[in-house]
Simulated scan of single mutants.
Amino acid sequence: MKILRKLAVCALATVAILPQTVAASAGELNVLTWEGYSTKGFIPKFEEASGCKVTASYVGSNDDFAAKLAAGGGVYDIITPSLDTVPMMRLAGFVAPIDTAKVAGFDGIYPEFSKAADVVADDATWAVPLIWGSVSLIYRPDKFATKPDSIAVLFDPANKGKISLWDDKSALYWTARYLGYDNVFDLTDEQLEAVKAKLIEQKPLIRKYWASAGELTELMANQEVFVSNAWTGLTSKDVNNLKKGFEVVEFTPKEKAEGWMDSMMLVKDTPNEDCAYKYMSFMQSAEGQCGIAESTGYFPVNPKAVAGCMSDEMKKDRQVDNVEFVKSLVMWQQPKRLDKYLEVWNAVKAAP
């Protein structure tokens, strides 16, 4: 507990915090979430049906959640961290348990997600699964003589200045897998030193660490980078829709892609609990699940909800009723020594 609270406070020193606003009044809902999770395509339908006005603020990394919540209570009502960050939010005391009886459609969620060890703990449910997907590699086929098949493409000097990487501690996971380590969430001190050294060696090759999917889209659309890791489905869709005269393609490296699942968590002492539960229920409905899947290109967590609002082709593309796909991914977990991982990643970024 003390370590996690310390991490939240330390995060304030490294993440820019926006000026604080007063707590939202009843009938308003402030959601701290990711790009594409609260768009005009489906949120107005919720607002009209519920009478709850949604204001969304966005994060670029899971590390942002602790920093922004530690900045002061009463600003956010719902947060949507990834599975590897859910335990930290619980143990740091930022969130309250979920009354699943108040979440319509909860029983339709894949049990692999709704009953996951980090979702259910201390005899309570702490998160409502929202959307899931993978993190693969994206590249410009016209810039490579042969199709890459490995994470090695991110460390190849031949691609100097045209490589990007997500500004997130998961860079350690990618590098650890590239170095052949299987225990990516429980690396030894020696292994972490090797990972740090490799990432520092890579820095001269990096054009920029991207902080959001929108930033990566711009980097690729403006031809500043040709290869990066990316949230599967989103950046490729956005870049290709710009029709810049070239296309980008995603691929799963031979070291496997990473997997993630984002969930809705109820911020402790929110004054907008009624709206929060209405929102969670809406996001388990056909309009919510198909809306967010369409907006992002990610995979729905509730196959019952999307049964009538997705074509068979889209269901296949979004892995509906194919939870076996999870087994092919390196699913994110909270690192055993989260503080050490953050320390190493910050050391990499601080290195010349």
Rank of each mutant, 00 (worst) to 15 (best):
D77R: 12
I79R: 09
I79T: 12
I79G: 08
T80V: 06
L83E: 11
M88S: 11
M89H: 07
L91Y: 14
L91M: 15
G93P: 13
G93S: 13
A96S: 15
P97S: 05
I98V: 15
A101T: 15
V103W: 08
G105K: 09
D107F: 00
I109R: 02
Y110H: 09
P111F: 05
F113R: 04
S114C: 05
K115Q: 14
A117V: 11
A117N: 14
D118C: 07
A121C: 09
D122R: 13
A124G: 00
A124T: 09
V128T: 06
P129S: 02
W132Y: 05
W132H: 06
G133A: 00
V135E: 09
S136R: 13
L137F: 09
L137W: 14
Y139W: 15
D142Y: 03
K143Y: 05
A145F: 02
A145Q: 13
K147F: 02
S150P: 14
I151C: 04
L154I: 07
F155T: 05
P157M: 01
K160T: 10
G161H: 04
K162T: 10
K162Q: 09
S164F: 04
S164K: 01
L165V: 06
W166K: 01
S170K: 07
S170C: 07
A171K: 03
L172F: 05
L172E: 13
Y173M: 10
T175E: 07
T175Y: 03
T175M: 10
R177C: 00
